[in-house]
Deep mutational scan, measured.
Amino acid sequence: MIVFVRFNSSHGFPVEVDSDTSIFQLKEVVAKRQGVPADQLRVIFAGKELRNDWTVQNCDLDQQSIVHIVQRPWRKGQEMNATGGDDPRNAAGGCEREPQSLTRVDLSSSVLPGDSVGLAVILHTDSRKDSPPAGSPAGRSIYNSFYVYCKGPCQRVQPGKLRVQCSTCRQATLTLTQGPSCWDDVLIPNRMSGECQSPHCPGTSAEFFFKCGAHPTSDKETSVALHLIATNSRNITCITCTDVRSPVLVFQCNSRHVICLDCFHLYCVTRLNDRQFVHDPQLGYSLPCVAGCPNSLIKELHHFRILGEEQYNRYQQYGAEECVLQMGGVLCPRPGCGAGLLPEPDQRKVTCEGGNGLGCGFAFCRECKEAYHEGECSAVFEASGTTTQAYRVDERAAEQARWEAASKETIKKTTKPCPRCHVPVEKNGGCMHMKCPQPQCRLEWCWNCGCEWNRVCMGDHWFDV
């Protein structure tokens, strides 16, 4: 396979590697080409510095992935760790964990309700045991953590790749202090920090972006993250068709209702045909949960890209028209025109101005929308079919299609509260000796007794199943 190397943020060049090629071997190839010592090179990928003893497969490097290699003399205490030698983080029983690669970060837990604080980093599902597709590297999971809308060759929703760059020099040479644990960490600028490894760059702020994971991409090709779309790892039924499908869209209502993408497309087109989208002054033209839940309008309007190009163009047109109407304007009634106009409040005669090729020149009556006339309008008909009709959803289907309910059931079956801080902690095999993952707590306690870890627990039921 081919990976592209950008040395000291210059133009990239291809390097041929195998899945079992080590990072140090990659350094040696680059060092020979650039005429520099291999031990002064640092390989940066997806916000993480890659260790010498890791392989291309370990690092989730795919065909035509772009890695950054910078030349920086080692500072005291760094060289041993980078070589894969006596790194205290690798000691058996050590409590410190390697910062998780962005290629394996899962933010789907952050669609849980606000009262489930902490689960994004504490609760991990076991539903990723799908067998890898044919042709994928051994052991590589097909679980997708992110979804994007690819405006490039795909023109559809695709699995996405999370990447990070330095907000100062805009190069992907920043190593994160810690990985993101929720969508806010990724979507809110300057929320996460790190250290830029580019020479002479003092940058410390992280800037995240997404790429389409279905095809090789260049540095400049980015895609918009659709953070309401998630892999259906909890096997929730769709609120409309009641099938279990994946991926799904999880509405931001209190129940976190789930809808499959085909039904979401149908829901949007139906509402669009009836012009029953909601115009929100802050958000724009949007839709609420299909069950009509309060405070559930979709905030990231790129989710409506699921409509496809033709329907999305209609959505944008109707949204612009609705904006004009909300501002007190009118639409030209001549067939084939429909231009938005903003006449004076007491102006009865409205002319669709033909300047700049935008208007048709038609003069019409503001009251009856017919060709302009003197005197009273002959008839004014009330528009028919403008009443909002509820999208029919079966109550039982709505009850079963809740992301929140599956989460709470998982928590109930696989977790116990920490005796000190009461945060839910998952036990997935292993011994009875637990350690609270909350940095402010870190209590060592017994899963069996529910009390602080002691010699009695150690001698009596340390390794009970």
Rank of each mutant, 00 (worst) to 15 (best):
N52W: 01
R348Q: 08
G361A: 07
Q25T: 07
Q178S: 13
V164I: 14
P37D: 13
L61P: 01
S22P: 13
K32S: 11
K32P: 00
L331F: 04
K435M: 06
V258M: 02
P335T: 09
L61A: 02
H373L: 02
H124N: 14
G361H: 09
A363Y: 08
S233T: 15
S255Q: 11
R366H: 07
K129M: 12
H124T: 11
Q252E: 13
C449Q: 01
G12W: 03
R245K: 13
D262G: 04
V380E: 07
D346V: 09
P439S: 11
G35N: 12
L102Q: 14
G361D: 06
P159K: 09
R89P: 13
E49V: 03
E376C: 09
R234W: 05
Q326L: 08
E370W: 04
F381C: 08
R72M: 15
S286T: 14
T414V: 14
F146V: 04
E221Q: 09
E382S: 13
T240M: 15
G430P: 15
Q64N: 14
S167Q: 09
W453T: 01
I306V: 08
Y285P: 04
V186P: 00
V67A: 00
C441T: 02
C268E: 01
E98T: 09
W462I: 06
R72D: 15
V425Q: 14
G118D: 14
L331D: 03
I2K: 14
I259V: 07
T217I: 08
V250E: 00
P247E: 05
V244R: 07
G385D: 08
R140P: 11
C457Y: 01
S127N: 13
Q197A: 14
S131L: 11
L283F: 13
K129Y: 07
C457T: 00
N81K: 12
V67E: 00
K413S: 14
F146G: 02
P37F: 05
G429Q: 15
R75V: 12
A92T: 13
P216R: 06
G47E: 02
G354S: 10
S198D: 10
E221C: 08
V29K: 11
V380M: 09
Q78F: 14
V56L: 12
C238N: 00
L187Q: 07
G385E: 09
V465Y: 15
R104G: 15
C352F: 02
G361I: 03
L26M: 05
T386I: 14
Q400M: 15
A379Y: 14
P335S: 13
L341Q: 12
Q282Y: 09
Q400N: 15
S101D: 14
V330T: 11
F210G: 02
A398G: 07
V324K: 06
K408L: 12
G308W: 03
K416L: 07
K299Q: 09
H200S: 14
Q158Y: 03
R271D: 02
M434Y: 05
M434H: 05
Q155S: 11
S145C: 09
S127V: 11
I23D: 00
G329F: 03
T168A: 08
R245L: 05
L102M: 11
L123Q: 15
G355C: 09
Q71M: 07
R366A: 10
L287D: 00
R455I: 15
K413W: 10
V70Q: 03
G319D: 10
G340W: 04
G450M: 03
C451I: 15
M458W: 03
T410V: 10
A390T: 13
I411T: 11
C59A: 07
T83W: 13
G292S: 08
G355T: 12
Q165R: 15
Q57L: 07
P180L: 02
F210R: 00
V258W: 02
L272Y: 01
G430W: 06
A134L: 10
C196Y: 02
R170F: 06
T222E: 10
V30R: 01
L443E: 07
N235D: 09
D106N: 12
V330E: 08
L443A: 09
G308K: 03
R392L: 13
L123R: 14
H215N: 02
H422N: 13
M434P: 01
H215D: 03
I122M: 15
T240P: 01
T386D: 12
T415G: 07
T168R: 08
E310G: 05
W54C: 09
D460A: 15
V244K: 06
T415W: 12
R420P: 01
N295Q: 08
C253V: 01
T270N: 04
L112R: 13
V456P: 15
S286L: 01
S407A: 10
R314A: 03
T231H: 11
C182K: 08
Q78R: 11
W403L: 06
P247Y: 04
A398H: 09
R72C: 14
D394R: 05
W54S: 09
H200D: 14
C368M: 02
K413A: 14
E370C: 05
C169F: 00
G340T: 06
V43Y: 00
C337P: 03
P335Y: 11
G12H: 08
S19Y: 07
F209L: 14
C166K: 00
R33F: 04
S109M: 05
Y149E: 02
V56F: 05
I259C: 05
C457E: 01
F251L: 02
D60F: 06
T175N: 12
S141I: 09
T231S: 10
G35S: 08
S286A: 03
G308E: 13
P153T: 11
A91V: 12
M327R: 12
Y143E: 05
D18A: 12
C323M: 14
F264N: 00
P294E: 12
N273D: 04
V250Q: 04
S205F: 13
R334H: 06
G47Y: 03
A363F: 09
C293L: 01
E370G: 06
V244A: 06
V5S: 03
D126K: 10
V278H: 11
H124Q: 12
W453G: 01
V393K: 05
R275W: 01
H265K: 04
V157L: 15
E96G: 11
A46V: 03
Y149T: 00
I44C: 06
T242D: 15
L307W: 02
A363H: 13
Y318V: 04
S407H: 12
A339S: 12
W445T: 03
D106E: 10
Q63N: 15
R314M: 03
T410A: 10
S65K: 05
R366E: 03
P133Y: 10
E16L: 05
D185Q: 03
R170P: 00
P281K: 10
D280A: 09
A371P: 13
G329T: 03
P417R: 10
T103C: 11
G361N: 07
I229Y: 02
K32Y: 13
E344D: 15
M458P: 15
Y391C: 05
S198L: 08
T55F: 04
C421S: 01
E221M: 07
F264E: 00
P333R: 03
A401Q: 03
D243V: 09
T351K: 07
E28R: 06
S255G: 06
T204Q: 09
K416S: 07
I411G: 08
F364K: 03
R392N: 09
W445M: 05
G354L: 10
D20N: 10
E221P: 06
S131I: 11
D184K: 08
I236C: 06
V3A: 02
V67M: 04
F4M: 09
K161A: 09
R275H: 04
E300Q: 08
Q438D: 04
S384N: 09
R104A: 12
G77N: 11
L50V: 02
L297Q: 05
F304P: 00
L26C: 01
A230Q: 13
Y149F: 13
D106V: 05
G329D: 03
P133A: 11
A31Y: 01
V244H: 04
F304N: 00
H302W: 07
Y312C: 04
C182W: 02
D185C: 02
T415H: 12
A406L: 09
C436T: 00
H461P: 00
P189D: 06
R245I: 04
C201V: 00
G213I: 06
G85A: 12
I66T: 13
S255C: 07
N144V: 04
G450P: 02
F381Q: 07
Y267L: 04
Q317D: 07
Q326T: 09
W74R: 12
K76G: 14
K76L: 15
A214Y: 07
E370H: 05
G359V: 08
E322V: 05
Q100M: 11
V15C: 05
C446W: 00
V70R: 02
V423C: 14
G12F: 04
N190L: 07
I411V: 10
G430L: 11
S101Q: 11
D185T: 01
K412M: 12
C154M: 00
I188M: 10
